[in-house]
């Protein structure tokens, strides 16, 4: 009985401490120190008012004038997002990869053939972006060299020269495309 009373009192104390004070302190500090990042790294339109997305989340692109992100098993839904969770010997996986190969061509790198883990992978590999440069250039009637130059500008190297893989953020690249004159 004594343990039960102590348990309930301690649960109240711990809920206040770790469930209210801690997240509120983090919220206050994060908002003050990193206002952009803590609010979801939103990307705004040219006017700077209307959010067009988050720099960290893929969004659906189907028009040929844009670069396309990696396949998303949840079709880029965010509430919730999803992966295929198909195993390595799945017939469904084999079919999905064949479909993606048809969509992106025989030369498509692996990241364009396979669905991402988050369903919202904001990046593609540099090869996957360069592969799409021809389509984008043709649709927009812009010389391909200019598009490829833009892609190369958007290749992010491994972080601090060490962590992760080189990659291209599709939304940021597409926004820069729209601003191209």
């Amino acid at each position: 009985m004594k343990h039960l009373v102590q348990s309930l009192r301690m649960l109240v104390v711990f809920t206040l401490l770790t469930g209210m004070i801690y997240p509120l302190v983090v919220t206050g500090l994060a908002r003050a120190l990193f206002p952009t990042q803590s609010a979801g790294s939103l990307v705004f339109d040219a006017g700077g008012n209307q959010p067009v997305g988050s720099a960290l989340l893929a969004q659906k692109f189907t028009q040929p004038k844009y670069f396309w992100p990696r396949p998303s098993a949840g079709d880029f839904a965010t509430l919730p997002s999803g992966a295929s969770n198909k195993g390595p010997t799945s017939v469904d996986l084999v079919k999905a990869i064949a479909d993606n190969r048809e969509k992106f061509g025989a030369a498509a790198p692996v990241d364009l053939l396979t669905a991402s883990g988050s369903g919202l992978d904001p990046h593609v590999s540099p090869a996957a972006a360069l592969l799409q440069a021809a389509r984008v250039a043709d649709t927009r009637k812009i010389p391909r060299e200019r598009i490829e130059a833009l892609v190369k500008k958007f290749i992010e190297p491994p972080q601090l020269g060490l962590f992760g893989e080189p990659r291209v953020n599709v939304l940021l690249l597409n926004r820069a495309l729209d601003e191209m004159r």
């Binding site: 010997t89 990869i97 692996v110 396979t114 669905a115 990046h123």
Partner: peptide, 15 residues
């Protein structure tokens, strides 16, 4: 089976 040299199914490019 899937005809992949290496699989990125369910993985993220940045990692």
């Amino acid at each position: 089976v899937a005809g992949l040299p290496v699989s990125l199914e369910g993985k993220e490019v940045r990692f």
